[in-house]
């Protein structure tokens, strides 16, 4: 044991330099060439940074495409899911309440048209995406609030739909809403 202590300490120190200084330094240097320079891709509106492309933010107003429910209320200082089990009665009642609220805010929409992501919290609480259907089902409400033709918003959603090779197609809600503000600025 004794004969191992000193070599073990010295080896640990050397590896500390290799794994915790040299290795991260290489990654850091390379990341300077990545989109966002390793600091995350930021999006701006009228010269003001309004968030990160990959980090979901809360959209709850009727004039915007709304994001999914979040267990951390899109507070990106932390992250978290609801961790509710599938049979938890309190949780199921909450999902039902979200459905009722959604149907109330979106008159004319039937329950069968509401995709489940609009009623369930994501794993991170910071999910930046919706399925295309999750955005399309909100078109009528947003069009009314903004006073634009629904067809133009449908086209906007389609233009912002991405992916679909390795995972389902998604719409980045922040990008979509930025494009929406561009297309039809909120009246107030």
């Amino acid at each position: 044991m004794k004969s191992n202590i000193l070599p073990a300490l010295r080896l640990s120190l050397v590896l500390l330099v290799l794994c915790c200084v040299i290795y991260p330094a290489i990654v850091w240097a390379a990341a300077q060439l990545a989109p966002g320079h390793g600091e995350g891709v930021q999006l701006s509106q009228k010269g003001r940074v309004v968030g990160f492309a990959n980090v979901g933010q809360k959209f709850s107003k009727p004039g915007y495409f709304n994001t999914r429910p979040s267990a951390v209320d899109y507070n990106a200082q932390g992250s978290g899911g609801s961790n509710k089990g599938p049979s938890n009665p309190e949780y199921l009642a909450q999902v039902k309440a979200r459905l009722d609220t959604f149907l109330l805010q979106n008159p004319g929409v039937k329950a069968a048209d509401v995709p489940a992501e609009l009623l369930t919290a994501s794993g991170s609480g910071l999910d930046p995406h919706l399925s295309p259907q999750g955005a399309l089902v909100q078109v009528a409400r947003v069009a009314k609030a903004r006073g634009v033709a629904p067809a133009r918003l449908t086209a906007l959603v389609n233009a912002n739909t991405e992916g679909g090779t390795l995972a389902p197609q998604v719409v980045n809600v922040l990008r979509l809403n930025l494009a929406l503000d561009e297309l039809a600025p909120a009246s107030k």
Binding site: N54, S60, A76
Partner: peptide, 27 residues
């Protein structure tokens, strides 16, 4: 990193979101 994960020593960043909430993003 090239897909968008941060590799930075900057502190968390406060932002005012599009609809006007204030948020802070950890990095």
């Amino acid at each position: 990193a090239f897909q968008g994960s941060p590799m930075t020593f900057q502190a968390k960043m406060p932002v005012v979101t599009v609809q006007g909430d204030s948020a802070v993003v950890s990095r």
